[in-house]
Design a protein around this nucleic acid. Structure first.
Length: 732
DNA sequence: CTCCTTTGTCTTTTT
DNA sequence: GACAAAGGAG
């Protein structure tokens, strides 16, 4: 009896197929992690040195789990396998070789917030109207350019006749210049620079090709073009590349993921073996059928049929509540009931479309004293106080990080305001030196008057820290910074709840520093900062905590729970307003894939819910039940009359008229009991004004349930479809 | 320079 | 409703 006997035929085939390119199409819950771990194990049995194996996962958490699972299968050697995310892999490579590209090896990693600050600064300097060109759009454009391996120069020549893009090209160019001057890389650069390194230094590439003779990539459907490039460079020599993915679970198009990577794999590697894993081991039949019912509405997908031998299981429950508060109250109550029946809290997860939806649940859980954990949202390391302390560490570590220096120069208050900072910056640019270096030369800056001394003093403080680190540990440095800045003392004096929470956060960061120093082989500041920059919130989700988990469906990818609550199943929430109004049908399909991911997280029970009205951005919105609910086969759904409705209005069950609902569109009768938008003051053919798109002509008005769907041909923006209640069109 | 108030702007997902 | 940016008083 070998460990491979428990695998099914396709799984075994995949495990034993070790040579040459292999595409593994693995449906949700089909045991792909088992296949990957067993495959690694088999490779080692075949005499492959674990040193030659590279496995790329999507999160650090997945990497850790994979290593542990391999470790439980093999007797020794698992620690030599290189298992990590794309980003961590690249950092490891760049730390060794980035000097070949003219960067310092102690480079800093910029997160999304840093990126935004830098872009904002550049826009200000370039006098760019961020109303015409929002920062978000600029960042996205630069990010997509990098995803396509396009340098600023290439971007400029490609788009020289497009006014807006030409502007972006200027910003992109300056942005890269600044990054380099600050000795910093953003997330995309980590991959980009690694590819560049391999391109310009074939001897380095060859070294890694020799090292990584067997490569595996998980969640392959979510790789972008640049990542594909990286992988194919590495695999070019030995061609032992195994990619695992599911096109139905591709949910990161918005950040550059390219489904074509998986759809065209056989085109890129013509001799590839393709194996499909279609048996689901995770979910009950009802849950799986519901998921299949939804996903089959997508036009562009590889045909496949996921099946299971599992029991039918319970029906899927769907409730429509009056408000999001009722929704939360009832879900929490259900969780209490399940808990009373003996279900551990950690077996229950609440999944939603957007992070903002977590708040109502959090309030309820606190009130009821139920342990919970929210994953995502504002990351721990993005909190003001934590970020402040990190910036101190960054400045100590990398003297060229202007952004970090500017952040802390007046935190705590040192009497150095915006005008002084500008003066230092101007001087730094004239002298072509870094911001921090300019601070060290404060005496030379003529424009500074009373601030001269203060800036000088700040410089001395930083120099003091650097000296201190020479013969002290990181923990000691951190403590020293806390003391000398008086950061905690300031907070203590405030005596507010908020301040106490901040102190706790700083202490948690201190814990991180301590535990890093204990675990690392050779602790150093760069590595600590890199660990901080590259962790995702999900990475810290401990299997052992018995807590209800709350997170977005995006974050839930790759996880599974016995009981799953999918809330906010409303058109406008999920699918989101953005995707409904977009004319690109691809976006709705991605949203549907997300729904598929959400449903397939559930093993035993699935609860779906919606609210008739909910507060969104301070306005009450009336939402129709999500179209995805409609796509689930009716016989799988159990729709109860609302329980515990707190508002006394007669409640109309959406399926109420009779059992015999097969022939009617289930949700249409709702238009009777929901307030319709006030009658419109414009009709087809009228000219109307929209706050963003300007003037246009109404081409059609369709009554869709509680709202009107209005199509307008705008003079500038072209044709748009919108809901009357959202669009606030004015007749002109 | 700092602190407080007011105004305006959004709609998503993240390494 | 939340949060950032701008404006105003000390």
């Amino acid at each position: 009896m070998s460990i491979y006997d428990t695998l099914n035929e396709q799984q075994r085939e995949a495990v034993f197929c070790t040579q040459g390119p292999l595409l593994l199409l693995a449906g949700a819950g089909s045991g792909k992690t088992r296949v990957l771990t067993h495959r690694i194990c088999y490779l080692m049995e075949q005499g492959v040195n674990p040193y030659h194996i590279l496995a790329i996962t999507f999160t650090n958490k997945a990497a850790k789990e994979m290593r542990e699972r391999v470790d439980s299968l093999v007797e020794f050697g698992s620690e030599h396998i290189w298992v990590s995310t794309f980003h961590s892999t690249c950092v490891r490579i760049l730390r060794r070789h980035i000097d070949l590209l003219g960067y310092d090896n102690s480079f800093t990693i910029y997160d999304g917030d840093d990126q935004k600050s830098l872009i904002r600064e550049i826009c200000k300097r370039f006098n760019i109207d961020t109303k015409m060109l929002p920062e978000r759009a600029i960042i996205n454009s630069i990010s997509s350019a990098k995803d396509e391996f396009m340098t600023p120069a290439e971007y400029e020549t490609t788009y020289q006749y497009d006014f807006k893009k030409k502007k972006i090209a200027d910003i992109y160019k300056e942005y890269q210049k600044q990054l380099k001057a600050n000795n910093a890389l953003d997330f995309d650069d980590l991959i980009f620079k690694t590819v560049e390194l391999f391109q310009f230094h074939p001897e380095v590439l060859e070294k890694y090709q020799e090292r990584f003779q067997y490569i595996m990539v998980d969640e392959y459907q979510d790789t972008n073009t640049l990542q594909f490039h990286l992988i194919s460079m590495l695999a070019r020599k030995y061609k032992n590349l195994c990619v695992v993915g599911d096109d139905d679970q591709s949910i990161y198009k918005f950040r550059g993921a390219n489904v074509k990577n998986i759809l065209n794999f056989e085109g890129q590697f013509p001799d590839a073996t393709v194996i499909k894993l279609e048996q689901n081991y995770r979910s009950t039949k009802s849950i799986l059928d519901a998921a299949n019912g939804v996903i089959k509405n997508n036009q562009t997908r590889k045909d496949k049929a996921l099946w299971t031998e599992n029991v039918d299981g319970e029906l899927i429950e769907f409730h429509q509540y009056g408000t999001e508060y009722e929704e939360a109250a009832n879900i929490v109550q259900k969780i209490e009931e399940l808990s009373a029946e003996g279900e551990p809290y950690k077996n229950m997860a609440i999944l939603y479309r957007a992070n903002a939806q977590s708040r109502v649940f959090e309030e309820k859980f606190m009130l009821k004293n139920i342990p919970y954990r929210i994953v995502g949202g504002t990351n721990f390391y993005q909190r003001k106080e934590v970020k402040d302390m990190i910036c101190y560490l960054k400045v100590v570590n990398n003297g060229m990080d202007d952004l970090a220096a500017k952040r802390i120069i007046n935190v705590p208050r040192r009497g150095i305001g915006a005008t002084s900072i500008d003066k230092i910056q101007t001087y730094a640019m004239e002298q072509e030196i870094g911001f921090m270096d300019a601070c060290f030369q404060a005496q030379e800056i003529e424009t500074l008057k009373t601030a001269k001394k203060k800036v000088q003093k700040f410089g001395d403080v930083i120099l003091g820290y650097r000296n201190y680190l020479e013969d002290h540990s990181l923990e000691e440095l951190f403590q020293y910074i806390l003391e000398t800045t008086g950061y905690i003392k300031d907070l203590e004096q405030q005596e507010t709840e908020e301040a106490t929470a901040r102190i706790e956060n700083i202490n948690e960061l201190l814990n991180k520093v301590v535990s890093y120093e204990e675990e690392a082989e050779e602790p150093n500041l760069s590595e600590l900062l890199e660990e901080i920059a590259l962790v995702a919130d999900i990475d810290n989700l401990e299997e052992s905590d018995n807590k209800v988990v709350l997170m977005t469906m995006h974050s839930a990818k790759g996880l599974e729970f016995p009981n799953v609550f999918l809330c906010g199943m409303e058109d406008g929430v999920f699918p989101s307003y953005m995707t409904i109004t977009s004319e690109d049908s691809e976006e709705l399909e991605e949203e549907r894939r997300l729904c598929y991911v959400g449903i397939t997280r559930a093993k035993e029970r699935l609860f779906l819910s919606a609210a008739k009205r909910r507060m969104m951005q301070g306005r009450t919105q009336f939402n129709k039940v999500s179209r995805f609910i409609d796509e689930i086969p009716k016989e799988l759904l159990k729709v109860d009359r609302g329980i515990n409705f707190s508002d006394k209005r007669p409640d109309h069950d959406i399926f109420s008229s009779s059992r015999n609902t097969k022939f009617r569109k289930p949700f249409q009768r709702r238009q009777l009991d929901l307030p319709k938008t006030e009658s419109l003051d414009y009709k087809e053919g009228d000219s109307v004004n929209h706050i963003k798109f300007g003037v246009g002509k109404v081409t059609s008005i369709v009554s869709g349930g509680r709202d009107y769907e209005v199509t307008v041909d705008f003079e500038k923006a072209g044709q748009k479809k919108m809901f009357a209640s959202f669009a606030k069109l004015k007749k002109v």
